[in-house]
Design a protein around this nucleic acid. Structure first.
Lengths: 340, 340
DNA sequence: CTGAAAGCGCTAACAT
DNA sequence: ATGTTAGCGCTTTCAG
């Protein structure tokens, strides 16, 4: 039981500036000046105060500080669907990095695609007086944010558009990317293309589906060329769906997987049965080039989207009051077609 | 220019409880009671106050609230190396999820393996009065945290041990996992095993190297059986190193890659040249089962580690003052050896 | 059950 | 250059 142990009972009261002032034999205000590195303090006093600060282990209470000064909290909130997903962790990582460059900390919260949770999280963050909010919308209506925006909370949406609130938004060209992917399949001669879809409840999925239709129209092909399989929620379901389609009548010669989890499931099944069917997936992912069979992907730069969104947010925080902008980032088809 | 636009100039002052009180024709304290859902308020007054709250778009200032009440901020800080890495984003995800269950928000900050940055971030988080800290140590000495701990900030370390501060810690059995992996290679008859290492500056790497030595000693084999290649910092370097070793004299028959980035680079090179050399990697990763050649991995449960650490943190926050504990989580060898 | 006053820890605006 | 006073927005006394 030496003095280096930290017995739970010995909780010390946190010293305040008053305590430091008393310890240093100066006034409260002088401590404040020293702690805030104001230049107009006698060097000798500075030293004395700093010594007391160190001796007492004083740490300024930033809550009290920002409350009194009416300053910003140097905090921004990020509301995403689920941090565990690499797509969102990339966003969080970039947002935190850009925030750090602005001496700001990032609070991350996951809505899990629940609009009500999103609302609660946003309000919670506002009551913590974040300077701004980065939101990947789960809900379709964000008018509840209007009062907060009017009171100075800056908001930037990313990956999906917001509803009922004009605000900066950064999106991916989902529709254009899907269109290009399917156009490439059509150009390669495919006329039976299966489209593996999760749920049209999500904006990005609807857009990608629209892109498929665009490509068919562009080529003046009937809609039946694309066989839409909905409800493919995970890799296992994707594998099953691929199997079912290949074993059924008129099996497709190509698959368009509308997100990377579906793609992974499809790869696995196509590889397992040695199928020569073509596969294009929306979303690139790590190691996609190391898959056991060739895999074409619609790639886009998630980090760039997050960077742009976060920079827009800090522009706003620093006083930019121009009209809200929407920026759309392009996609890139990485063609790794099967040998025919 | 309709009224739905949000012209930048029209910034409204945030209403306070005083404003709500005036609007509702009650006292400040009654507003406070209603906002805090205290039961002892006349129903009619509650309705009136709630109406004013809605009309003015009032949101309680949580900073002021916690300052005055001396309550917790319902915030915990997570200091990791880099959020972009899936290992750390898994930790962040679990920490945020567990925190959410405790009605707490998570502030995430990356130290980028810089002890000085870690120190700064920790102090910043403390000045924001987080209730607790989850830290993956970058530095070797955490005694600077002692005053904060004494003043009630709870701290749990994970993945790496702290230095100079007794505190709860959750670790992975790096040494045991490496020992088991190399033992399996030895049992399979390998006597020229290349160990691909990043840097021994990091605790986990040193431990895994110790595990390699343990396995050799267990088998009474000379240390030369393991050929240590240090400085393998990324997949590209791993591929180069593998190539160099295979093209050199006495090429190894097996490789032990000490983390998953190295593993990926090694897989790629072994596959490219159709080598039959065995490969075992520390760290499992997504899609490891879909690699173009068999790959054995030392797997462990990152999420379980993070969950345990975060739960320990909340136990502390809720008043647990028992002696600091260190928990070590086991690893699991997932054998997918090459066909011999 | 409701309200007036005091004060959390700090900084802005004035003194001196 | 230093100190005094007031008060940020809220909750905690303590009166009524």
């Amino acid at each position: 039981m030496n003095s280096s142990s930290l017995p739970g009972g010995s909780r010390v009261k946190r010293p305040t500036m008053v305590d430091v002032a008393r310890h240093a034999g100066v006034s409260l205000k002088t401590v404040s000046r020293v702690v805030n590195a104001e230049p107009t303090v006698n060097t000798e006093l500075v030293d004395r105060v700093l010594a007391s600060v160190a001796a007492l282990g004083f740490q300024r209470n930033q809550l009290a500080s920002t409350l009194r000064a009416g300053r910003r909290t140097a905090t921004v909130g990020l509301v995403i669907e689920e941090l565990a997903n690499p797509f969102y962790s990339t966003i969080a990582s970039v947002a935190a990095e850009v925030a750090a460059r602005h001496d700001t900390m990032l609070i991350t919260a996951s809505s899990e695609e629940d609009p009500e949770a999103e609302r609660r999280l946003v309000f919670d963050l506002c009551s913590r007086r974040v300077d701004g909010l980065l939101v990947v919308p789960a809900g379709a209506d964000h008018s509840f944010l209007r009062p907060e925006v009017e009171m100075g909370v800056q908001v930037v949406f990313l990956d999906r558009p917001s509803g009922g609130l004009p605000a900066d938004t950064v999106l991916i060209d989902n529709r254009g990317g899907a269109r290009e992917a399917v156009a490439a399949l059509i150009a390669a001669g495919h006329r039976r293309i299966a489209v593996l879809l999760d749920s049209v409840a999500v904006y990005t999925m609807r857009e990608r589906l629209e892109g498929v239709r665009d490509a068919l129209e562009d080529a003046r092909l009937p809609p039946e060329v694309a066989r839409i399989a909905e409800g493919v929620a995970d890799p296992a379901r994707a594998a099953e769906t691929v199997a079912g389609l290949l074993d059924g009548p008129n099996p497709p010669t190509a698959f368009f997987a509308v997100n990377n989890r579906i793609t992974v499931g499809a790869v696995q099944e196509l590889w397992r049965r040695g199928s020569g069917a073509e596969l294009v997936g929306f979303d690139d992912f790590e190691l996609s080039h190391l898959m056991p069979r060739p895999l074409t992907v619609v790639a886009y730069d998630t980090a760039a989207m997050a960077r742009r969104a976060t920079e827009m947010l800090f522009d706003r925080i620093r006083g930019d009051r121009s009209a809200p902008r929407t920026e759309v980032l392009g996609t890139r088809l990485v063609w790794r077609g099967v040998r025919r």
